[in-house]
Simulated assay, not measured.
Amino acid sequence: MSEINKKICNLIAEEWISKAKSNRAFALDHNIDEKTVRKILQKDGYEIPLITLIRICEAKEMKLSTFFKLLNI
């Protein structure tokens, strides 16, 4: 399960957080806490709660199924 967590966090970090103005800006734009953004950026595979993933996808106007297709798993 840890490998999946790493893939999820890496995708969010590399594709979206890295392109945001700041961690704080990403957090505000996606209705999550800045502390959560820092946890996602950690390299140890943060277990992202489903509600957090849902909030990020809603802010991106993306379905969860589309997000998981991006993971190629």
Rank of each mutant, 00 (worst) to 15 (best):
K21R: 10
L70N: 12
D44W: 06
T66Q: 13
I56T: 14
A27C: 14
S65T: 15
M1I: 13
E34R: 02
N72K: 04
E34N: 09
I73F: 15
F68Y: 11
P49V: 04
E58A: 11
C57T: 06
K7N: 03
F26M: 08
M1Y: 14
T52V: 15
R55E: 01
H30A: 02
N31W: 08
L71N: 05
K6V: 15
Q42Y: 08
Q42R: 12
C57N: 04
K7A: 02
A13E: 02
I73G: 07
N23A: 06
P49T: 04
S2V: 15
H30M: 03
M1G: 15
E34L: 05
I48H: 03
E47W: 15
L11N: 07
K7L: 05
T66L: 01
G45W: 02
L11F: 14
A25M: 10
K63Y: 14
I73R: 13
C57A: 03
K63H: 13
L53R: 12
E34I: 00
D44H: 02
F67L: 07
K21G: 04
K60Q: 00
F67N: 05
S2D: 15
K19W: 02
M1L: 12
S18L: 06
A20I: 05
I56H: 08
K39A: 05
E34T: 05
I32W: 01
E3P: 04
